[in-house]
Design a protein around this nucleic acid. Sequence first.
DNA 1: TTGAAAGCGCTAACAC
DNA 2: GTGTTAGCGCTTTCAA
Lengths: 334, 334
Amino acid sequence: MSVTLADVARRAGVSPATASRALGGRPHVAPATRLRVHRAADELQFVVSPEASRLAGGSGGRVGVVVPHLAQWSCGAVLEGLEPVLRGAGVDVLLYGVGDAAARTAFFADLPARRRVDALVVLGTALDEHERGRLELMAVPVVAAAATGRQPGVHVDEHAAARHAVDHLLHLGHRRIGAVAAAGPLDGVLDGALEAFAAAHREALRGAGFPHEDLLVRVGRGASGAAEGAGRLLGLREPPTAVVASSDEVALGVVRTLGRARLRVPDDVSVVGLGDHPLAEAADLTTVCRPVREQGAEAARMVLAALVDGAVPPSVVLPSRLVVRGSTAPPRSA
Amino acid sequence: MSVTLADVARRAGVSPATASRALGGRPHVAPATRLRVHRAADELQFVVSPEASRLAGGSGGRVGVVVPHLAQWSCGAVLEGLEPVLRGAGVDVLLYGVGDAAARTAFFADLPARRRVDALVVLGTALDEHERGRLELMAVPVVAAAATGRQPGVHVDEHAAARHAVDHLLHLGHRRIGAVAAAGPLDGVLDGALEAFAAAHREALRGAGFPHEDLLVRVGRGASGAAEGAGRLLGLREPPTAVVASSDEVALGVVRTLGRARLRVPDDVSVVGLGDHPLAEAADLTTVCRPVREQGAEAARMVLAALVDGAVPPSVVLPSRLVVRGSTAPPRSA
DNA sequence: TTGAAAGCGCTAACAC
DNA sequence: GTGTTAGCGCTTTCAA
């Protein structure tokens, strides 16, 4: 079969216990012995059996990541930040997709992660009361990586992000700033984010003393939602000179609809997105960058800490940052 | 501590051995006994310890997924297809990111998956000789889910995909069809895909009897690459009336550059992408859809099969499909 | 059909 | 510093 620790010990001329200590980096091993053991392990291409190790009370952490929409770039980006930190600390990363409702229900009903992971990271999705209760049953630390939310974890201030966008347009001299709110990059799951978006738009305009009524349109997701939103804004008696969208995806849809109506961006209408989608640069879209990768890394650090003392560290809110590109300009009249 | 099998056995009034058989669905257990054991397990909320189970020779599959770029939507989509199939079969999915070169080298050097997984799925990346050798050392089935490639697994015919795109333009009446080849959605890792793209473009034009020299430009990745590509095509003595891009990302960059040059899509120039990016619909981009999700699901089925009989089933090539949207039209003169 | 016993490969006390 | 001993929680012969 496979090479075992006993093999290594024999070859190094020590007992399994010593070999274990040496390989595990634990104290009370003479440097020379440690070296011999390591050499033997290398020669034999030994790798510890995680099952045996854990069963015997060893460390070997594993964290489960609960992901709603893997194909969503932001989830991937968070994972991309998360994974190296975790793996660097020697912990395995288990994936649990809860994309459709059925899978989600099944996950929380069966808790397949039970006894398989030592901690959980929940990406970009708000848990309801019942789900939270189920997770508690696992008795492992849970950290969230999502939009502003009540669960302990790493969040991004969606309200501030939206404010950045609107403030940028106000700063450029726009007064009538439309807003298209559609299910965002996280696909309606960050419901809180949408509210924050609406509130930020209202506050910013009201604060500047400009009207905001009718300037926010709520639409369905996808290309059709964006098109509808742009259409409704355009149909206004006095159409806005600028538009903020609840996500870059929506923003791109708006740009396209504008183009169809023979309106140029940014000459005729400015558009700002939210999220700094990988394609935003190619599309030359002004947007607000959320530090998604960093969010993942930070969440990873939090679980790591939780793995040590069993308690989840205090929540963190990461800042977002305006990225000015070519889709915004001062209004025509200015 | 946790509820153990022994607890369940005691409560059901049987021996651990019987409880194990009953819970494991193995034969030689009286129906009544089986029922009692299951009931006891439910009442105690018992979940087997995977470590102990595996250590003792039980089943409990785990497959590792090696992913180059998690934030790339296509990787996420493949994962989204893969994960439910695997988890549905009761196997855990472990994530191994090999994004940057360092992580990649480290992965193949340390083989951290060794002894931790029973099979491996490699997403969208070609392995070199050495890497393949390292993987072999793990002595587990490996299936690829990538572009056309030599490794056994699930592939997509990149050549055919590019042909769909060019043929569509030819069909519309275009004769001068430019091609912008940049590191695609999988970021240069599918090197083979780029060659297939170039070859398909050349073949299609040559087959139709049209010139193709100078009509293919190879550029760097990112927005600047796309811009450069479009620029070079536009700078030709006789610029193309249509452009195919090696990915939707690049296509969008081309569209943007065209717009800056005051050229309308598709009125002045048609543009086709490759990949059916989630944003392609919002951007109204004609493209070729690769069945990424299905690719993941199929790969999952292959590993599942491999887990049973230890051998990887024969490779599969999935078809791609043209998706006509608003970025293509007959040429002006037509 | 069921139970008893023997490990799977490792780590953690506790002796030396 | 190092070896010895005793399990971790399960599955699996082998006997009953």
